[in-house]
Amino acid sequence: MARYGMALDYKSCINCKACESACKEENGILLGADKHRIWVGVKDIEGIFPDLSISSSGFEPSQCQQCDNAPCQTVCPTNATYYDDNGVVRVNPEQCILCTYCMEACPYDARYIDDRTMTVDKCNFCSDTRLINGETTTACQATCPTKVRIFGDLDDPESEISLVLRARDHHSMKEHLGTKPKLFYLT
């Protein structure tokens, strides 16, 4: 029993996409632009040469926010989407009817259709491949060359993530929607 979350030191991101590759490999995600659990957002440089704004450019790695109050879960008609014991929002493919209401309701475009099971899938913090074996890392975090990602138990006051969230200023995406995301962007 834990409450897993992830902090992202996103200003260190170099858009190498190692995390995305690792995720695809770890979780056996199909190829194709539509099929991604995690992604790297790109902010384009603003301004006209030579007055370019360097501060405007940057990268924003993201994925399912593992919302504590997840709209995708609330709208699911069959409870195929559920919170597991670790507070991770998961999909049970046996129960998913592919109504895609969750894809409609997720404010973060975090869900996609897995063509093999013909059900909706999403990031589950490597629950099936790592957490279930007692590991406490995710593939994206383990592989990141610039150590952008800090993964851990938010309920443990001594975990690295709890310490860093206490020490550093941070924000989450679209917090005003009341989704209570568990992805934190360190500023």
Binding site: T74, N79, M118
Partner: peptide
């Protein structure tokens, strides 16, 4: 349009999502 209409009928009853407008509508 629904990917699994038969499954829908089954799990609408077995595990109803009472906070879902689709469940109520259906």
């Amino acid at each position: 349009e629904i990917g699994h209409p038969v499954r829908m009928v089954i799990y609408n009853v077995l595990t109803p999502g009472l906070t879902s407008a689709i469940w109520w509508m259906g």
